[in-house]
Amino acid sequence: MQDPDPRTLARARAGDVGAFEELVRTYQGDLYRFAYSYTRDRALAEDATQEAFLRAYRFLPSFRGESRFGSWLFRIARNCALDAIRARKGQEERALRAPAPPGPSDPFARVELHTALAAVSPEHREPFLLIEVFGLSYQEAADVLKVRVGTVKSRMHRARVAMMAALATEEAEEEEDAGEL
C-alpha cells in the first residue's frame, strides 16, 4: 500500500479540500474494492466508500501517524462496510440491488473463487483479502483488524491453505463431471 505525499497529507489535515481530493483520487479504487469484498453489492460498497472518506475528512486532524495512512483508511472503510451490511439487514425490502458487476474473462473461475472464499470463515477471510488482494503487510493488516501480528500471520496461512484445498476440490469435482459427459 502506498503512502501519500507527506505534504499533501499535512495540507489535508489542515483542512485543505484540494489536498484531500488528491487522497481521494489515490485511495478510492482500493477502498471501494475493499468495501465491496464485505458488501458484495455495488451500491452498498459505493455508499460505504463515500461514508469512509467523509469520516476520514472529519477525523483527519486526529490522525497521528501511529499506523500508516492506508491502514487507518482501511480501518475506517471496514467499519463503514460493516455498518452498511447491518443497515441493509434492517431494510432488506429497499435493497433493489444492482446487478452483479461484469465478471472477469472467465466467469466460472470467478464463481469458483467466491465459492472457495465463502468456505473460509470471516475471521480468516479478512486477513486473506487484505494481504493477498490488497497487498498489505502483516503489520498493516493487524492495524486494520486491531489484532496481533502473530494472529494475522497464522490466520493468513490457514486461509491460504484452505483456499488452495477448496479450489483443488472444485477442480477435481469438475474433472469428474467432465468425465461423466
Partner: peptide, 11 residues
C-alpha cells in the same frame, strides 16, 4: 485477477 469488481469513479 479474479476477485475484482469494476471500480466506479467516485471522486
Amino acid at each position: 485477477l479474479g476477485l475484482a469488481p469494476a471500480v466506479p469513479d467516485l471522486v
